[in-house]
Design a protein around this nucleic acid. Structure first.
Lengths: 230, 230
DNA sequence: AAGTGGTCTAGACCACGTT
DNA sequence: ACGTGGTCTAGACCACTTC
């Protein structure tokens, strides 16, 4: 093999962008030209550029060519494990407690998102996840029964809804939002903290085939950190 | 072309895992076998499986083969734009104000991380980022002068350290942590909020070639949400 | 219409870890 | 030693978008 590898090409392209040999927003040479410059097959250049584009450094379009992205966006990948695994990875013993499980009419906002008829019931679950018997996470979840009727037969005392859904609902799309909020009275009581403490909140919506299956609000007590590495 | 595309193969592999036709932790057929099953080239299967592995669904090893990952970890990619861009994307006018800029001895924790000699100075910056002249983000940053001496000549009143560093330092790696915390007195004053309010905190460390270049604590006022999509 | 990137093929050699 | 995935090639056709 005489030419460069796709990793070498990635590195070199990164260098040229950093050194501003290829200016921000500018068109870079075509795959064909780069393949001839680097003495390699076009597929090799393609892989290098494709990966750099997925990292946010390049912007590629058919016919229009490849440009250096004007606003280099760093992308961090956040691993979102099942809560049980997250707890067990810290070395702690995992346990969860279903504080409340009811089929009842959902609030309007949730009803709209799940496309429920007025008065149609959804499953409302409040679950406390514990690490070594200490509160780790309070989960307030609505489940669309029409989308996953089997959930009514799930042994939710043994396997958390979180885990059951991951195992039984096909991989799907979803939105996640992170924020900070003061703990309200019920959250404070469940987590054993002072009302108004700063809690870390994750709001998650999960969809399958365009249908909203579940919507969860996860409340972590003070001290919790969600970490990642770029 | 008679066979399946890499996208079709990804979809089918996902389905088999979901349907437990391929059990969690089990070995799946080799690329060669799948290529013959799907009537396509091995490279096509390779691309499908490689991408699924990068999404956390599969675990691949030479000679050992490809296994279904036991702990399916959902991965969300978080886009981390420059603050100016983040503000401008909301339609607001961006402005920043350097509240403090000093070269001084860093606290021990930071000195250790940056490999500074005792007493060696680092650059300490406190910057308030504004959206339509309202506080958007308070940034407390330490910069390793030895790693980027040019920062001392940067016009930090015009271009924020955040943006200057992104443009001038080839960033190789970094850690990010998200948490919730009560605002302390100085944070509350800068952001115009009540002491103890729940603020969203991002702690970021950035390295180049193994050397820690900068460490920043970003404090967002109540109401801020960091969103993403799976 | 033309040129770009997107994908696929059939083959090859290599790196690596398990056996 | 062997079989796996990792990568590369030279060519091909296609999809899309701009010209």
């Amino acid at each position: 093999m005489s030419g460069a590898s796709y990793l070498e090409i990635k590195e070199e392209v990164r260098r040229r962008i950093q050194a501003q040999e290829w200016a921000s927003g500018a068109l870079i040479p075509s795959e064909k030209d780069l393949a001839s410059e680097f003495q390699c097959a076009r597929a090799t250049v393609n892989r290098a550029l494709r990966e750099l584009a997925s990292e946010g450094l390049l912007d590629r379009r058919r016919r229009a060519g490849t440009r250096v992205n004007m606003t280099p966006v760093r992308k961090a990948t956040l691993a979102i494990p099942i809560t049980r695994i997250e707890v067990e990875n810290t070395g702690a013993k995992y346990r969860h407690k279903v504080l409340s499980a009811q089929q009842r009419a959902a609030p309007a906002a949730i009803r709209a998102q799940m496309n429920l008829d007025p008065g149609e019931a959804a499953l409302h679950l409040v679950t406390l996840h514990l690490a070594d018997d200490l509160p780790f996470l309070l989960e307030d979840r609505w489940v669309n029964i029409a989308a996953v009727p089997a959930i009514l037969k799930a042994p939710l005392e043994e396997i958390s809804a979180n885990e059951w859904l991951v195992q039984n609902v096909p991989i799907s799309a979803g939105d996640i939002a992170f924020s900070a909020a003061p703990a309200d009275a019920s959250e404070a009581e469940a987590l054993g903290i002072v009302v108004g403490s700063a809690v870390f909140v994750v709001d998650r919506t999960t969809q399958t085939r365009g249908q909203t299956v579940t919507k969860a609000r996860l409340v972590y007590p003070p001290g919790y950190r969600m970490q990642t590495h770029i």
